[in-house]
């Protein structure tokens, strides 16, 4: 069925466009804008943008400080953590109420569904918009930042970029590396009922980002 539909559709397109296979001309040149935030202002800009969306941002020099903040937030609540090395380096994965080391989707799903907190890192962070960039891999699972009630990301400060343009300038085709790139900009929200803002509709209702390092 599909093969036949394919030929019909492509055929109709060529007939109606009065063209054969191939391009009629080159596409317009790609337009990547120059950075709008200077590197020394990355953290401040990220913080301002994410806080405007009701997210929280911390900046610490040492891994132990990140651990202390995480402990302060999660207390003894059930938590899942991704396999990002920075989480182990900070000592987060050794906490008693933190489950990590998941290598299969079924057990991760079960644990995340019960968890109050999901802790991940991020591959990049975007200063212009307060965005976390998550590339799915053996280190970062999709569900850890999605299924639990709240999300905490512990990210090396050096992962900050100016914005979307710089990200796409560096990763010309993000899917060369991953099946899934997700940009997270603030908590889950909806305004479907009377345009009244509600957070945490399906994804996490709280997002906290901790930058580690100078």
């Amino acid at each position: 069925m599909s093969a036949q539909a394919r030929d019909t559709i492509l055929g109709r397109i060529r007939t109606n466009l009065k063209k054969g296979p191939g391009l009629t001309g080159p596409p317009p040149a790609v337009r990547i804008a120059p950075p709008r935030v200077a590197p020394e202002a990355y953290v401040a800009s990220f913080k301002e943008r994410l806080e405007a969306l009701a997210g929280r941002v911390h900046h610490v020099a040492q891994p132990e400080e990140a651990l202390a903040i995480v402990q302060g937030i999660i207390g003894d609540k059930s938590t899942v953590a991704s396999n990002a090395p920075i989480l182990a380096r900070c000592g987060i994965t050794r906490l008693g109420n933190v489950q990590s080391g998941f290598t299969d989707a079924a057990s991760l799903k079960e644990a995340s569904a019960q968890a109050e907190y999901g802790i991940t890192s991020a591959d990049f962070a975007l200063a212009e918009t307060g965005t976390l960039v998550m590339l799915s891999s053996h280190e970062e699972a999709r569900m850890a930042s999605l299924v639990p009630v709240r999300h905490i990301a512990v990210v090396e400060t050096a992962r900050l970029l100016s914005g979307l343009d710089e990200l796409l300038g560096r990763l010309e085709r993000p899917n060369d590396q991953t099946a899934s790139m997700v940009l997270i900009t603030g908590p889950s929200r909806s305004a479907d009922i009377e345009q009244i803002l509600v957070r945490g509709v399906h994804g996490p209702g709280e997002v906290t980002v901790i930058f580690v390092g100078p």
Partner: peptide, 28 residues
């Protein structure tokens, strides 16, 4: 659409989960 610089989530998805990836669909 809504005055947002970026919406809360933007997903760029290509193919099923790859070898090594922990989760994601097996068929796409």
């Amino acid at each position: 659409a809504t005055g947002q610089a970026l919406t809360s989530y933007t997903s760029l998805l290509n193919g099923p989960r790859r070898p090594g990836e922990v989760d994601g669909p097996e068929e796409f």
